[in-house]
Structures are given as C-alpha cells and as structure tokens.
C-alpha cells in the first residue's frame, strides 16, 4: 500500500490524537459552561449553526454540481478552451463585490445567501477538476475509449473517478470559502444564522459570552466536518495515485 501523505501520518500519531481530543473536550466544556450561565443560548446557538450549515451545504451541493458539469463540458468541447480565460477572469473578481447585485435580485434572504456562497465555492472546485481532467493519463483515457466508455459511460466510469481527488481537494478549499461567504452575508444583512448570533447585541454584557460560545461551537463543527467527512475522503484519494 502506498505511504500515506505526510498529513495523515501527523494525524495518526497518538500524541496528536490525545492533544486533539483534549482540545475538543476543552472547547465543549467552554460551550457547556457558557451556555449554562447564559440561559437559553445553547438552543439558539444550535438553531443558528444548523441554519448556517444548511445554507452552506445547499450552496456547496449546487457549486459541486455546476462546477463538475462545467469542467466536464469544457474538457469535452473544442470550444471549451476559449472559455477558460473568461472563467479565470471571473474567479479573480472579489466575491463580496457581488453582494449588492445579489441583494438587488433576491434581497437579504436565505436564497440570496445560498446563491452568493455557491458562486464563491464554485471556482476552486471548477479549476481543480478542470486541471485533473486536462492532465488525465492519456493512455488511461485511450484504454477507457477502447474498452467501450463513450458518452455518459465515459463520464461516469472515467471522468468522474479521474476527477475524484480534485473534487475532494476543491471541495475542502471551497467549503472553507463557503463558511466565510455565508457568515459574511449573515452578519451584513440577515437576522438568522451563526453570523447574527456572533454579532448580536454587541452593546450588551452578554455579547462576549455569546461570541466565545459561537466561535467555540464553530470550531467544533468545522473540526468534526474535517475529521468525519473530508479526512476519510482525502484518504480514499490516495488510491487514485498512478
């Protein structure tokens, strides 16, 4: 079996696992202590986090579908190469500059947050997948064609597996960009979600407590998503090495 990349060795070390466990335990202890002293904050926090996470997951799924679809279409089309500079230019546009445009069409709503976050998450997935498809092993592609993978079969049994490691890497980068987009829009113009929870009533004495509570809970959620979703998928991509 191939040696796992350096990152996996790090997280596999016993010392690292123990440190991570204590850190997580410490953060959870903070959350519980503060929520006890701050009344019904825990319930509000869970509600806010779930809503933000729901917006983010929705945005991520849209971006994933659109990015993979565009990447495969570009790769399979002769005209596709001429679109790459256009996408390259578009991805350089600071995403927050587009907020007024989205607000104009959708107002400050959950839908607007999802669409805005989706446009931010899209780019890393699109470019990672496109690069993977463009640099795919030519002989493997020829083998797929000779053994009958054409059209949809080629997409399902060759292009998607070839792009799988890039989909995961792009998703990890995109998901973290998505958190920023969702929380950013929530803080700017929404009254629900983890953004307003962190920003709520910053003149009150309760503010510091809810701020620590919110950030700690975010840390736990991000950590758990990394550990339970991305790390196992990233580990699976090791098999895809030639």
């Amino acid at each position: 079996m191939a040696r796992l990349v350096h990152g996996f060795h790090l997280t596999k070390k016993r010392k690292h696992k123990i440190t991570t466990f204590f850190l997580l335990f410490f953060i959870l202890a903070i959350i519980i202590t503060i929520s006890i002293s701050a009344g019904d904050s825990l319930g509000l926090l869970i509600q806010a986090l779930c809503l933000s996470l729901f917006r983010l997951i929705f945005a991520y799924l849209i971006s994933l579908f659109v990015a993979v679809l565009i990447a495969i279409s570009i790769n399979n089309s002769k005209l596709g190469d001429s679109l790459i500079p256009i996408f390259d230019l578009m991805q350089n546009l600071p995403s927050f500059a587009l907020i007024p445009l989205f607000v104009f069409y959708f107002g400050y709503t959950s839908l607007m947050t999802i669409i805005f976050a989706a446009t931010s998450i899209l780019w890393p997935i699109l470019f990672y997948v496109l690069h993977a498809l463009k640099t795919a092993d030519k002989d493997q592609e020829n083998a797929a064609r000779i053994f009958g993978a054409h059209g949809l079969k080629k997409i399902l049994f060759f292009s998607l597996p070839v792009a799988f490691p890039a989909i995961i890497t792009g998703s990890i980068v995109g998901f973290s960009i998505g958190w920023e987009a969702v929380i950013g829009v929530e803080i700017i113009g929404l009254s629900t979600g983890i953004g307003p929870f962190l920003n709520n009533d910053n003149s009150s004495s309760m503010h510091n407590k809810t701020l620590i509570l919110g950030i700690s809970a975010l840390l736990v959620v991000v950590f758990l998503i990394n550990r339970l979703v991305w790390m196992p998928l990233l580990k699976k991509t090791q098999l895809y090495a030639n």
Binding site: A143, I146, N242
Partner: peptide, 12 residues
C-alpha cells in the same frame, strides 16, 4: 482490445 506500454490500468 489493446494492451498499453504502461499497462494503463485504472488506479481507482
């Protein structure tokens, strides 16, 4: 059918 120089197996 074809056999390739570098085997061209699908690593996944």
């Amino acid at each position: 059918a074809m056999v390739f120089q570098n085997s061209a197996l699908f690593p996944w």
